[in-house]
Design a binder for these strands. Structure first.
Lengths: 160, 160
DNA sequence: CGATCAGCGTTAGTCGCACTAACGATTCAG
DNA sequence: CTGAATCGTTAGTGCGACTAACGCTGATCG
């Protein structure tokens, strides 16, 4: 019944990881995240998109036009990196960037119709990718998992 | 009762993240992992250690002396990076590295008495760090969390 | 035996991501 | 009016996962 029955495998545990290691939540998290990131990144690449595109477009859809700094705060992307992301989005005509007449330090970022359609596509794509990511879990467990992650993240999202 | 009562905060949601984003397991994972990694790394640094030190020492403790390649497979550390880790461990006299007379390609890595003691210290340190990492969860939830992570990781640990 | 292929330890280097520092320009606060 | 804060932007750091290639050794097999 157990794995011990596989006695015909000579040195089957040659690549076994010590339990001490396997049980550590920190390790499980980072290992799983590497896989998750790869899955998502490759999936989005097939749609000529990156994770940040989604983050910015989603933020824009929910909170109408916004400045770059505001998008940065909402999406968690550093404003130094936001520049490049918006360049890519503007190249693809998913977003329009115009100087703010009311405050000439700011840019006003607006999501375009193409941007909306693209976001919709990314949403179904991501649903799909998350379906394979969470494949071994049934719906209730997926909710639980997301809920646990959310609680942990919220708890550690305060002061640095 | 709800957060809506905080009406005295003028534009309280200036840094709010769209729900679309917050719910994605992939995003929760990577965000949480950044925090978790930082917590662990900083905690271990205070004991003059790194994550990999623990991984290697734990592997050694469970599977007596081993070659570098074997340690690499068990711990998930690339053998190109294993070199540096073992240098650090050897510097600290936590590990001994000697050429294998039986197979002159290999090195035989042995954990020293100091290494055992160090590993024990790291274990309690990590227990502590994980306690703060998982602080918002009660014991049952922590088990659940680890179990869900394990199932997901096992599922995605196959062919790459 | 000899040739070939695989595994070992090591060095070097790539790529992407989170993050910092500093800049000129603008706006806000005292 | 002066100093502080905010904005967009450029450049660069540090680190973790990962690849490529090397010289050496050992195993395989005709």
């Amino acid at each position: 019944m157990t794995r011990a029955e596989a006695a015909d495998l000579p040195d089957a545990d040659a690549l076994r990881t010590p339990d001490r290691l396997r049980r550590r939540a920190s390790r499980l998290l980072s290992q799983l995240t590497v896989r998750s990131d790869r899955l998502i990144t490759e999936g989005l690449a097939r749609a000529d998109a990156r994770k940040w595109h989604y983050a910015v477009l989603a933020s824009l859809q929910e909170f109408s036009p916004a400045s770059q700094a505001e998008l940065s705060r909402r999406s968690g992307i550093y404003r130094s990196d936001m520049v490049g992301v918006l360049n890519e989005l503007a190249e693809r005509d998913l977003v329009e960037r115009t100087p703010d007449p009311a405050d000439r330090r700011r840019n006003v970022i607006t999501i375009s119709p193409r941007g909306h359609r693209h976001l919709d596509r990314l949403d179904v794509l991501l649903d799909d990718l998350h379906d394979t990511l969470l494949a071994p879990l049934d719906p209730a467990e997926r909710d639980q998992f997301v809920q646990l992650l959310t609680r942990l993240l919220d708890h550690h999202a305060g002061a640095s």
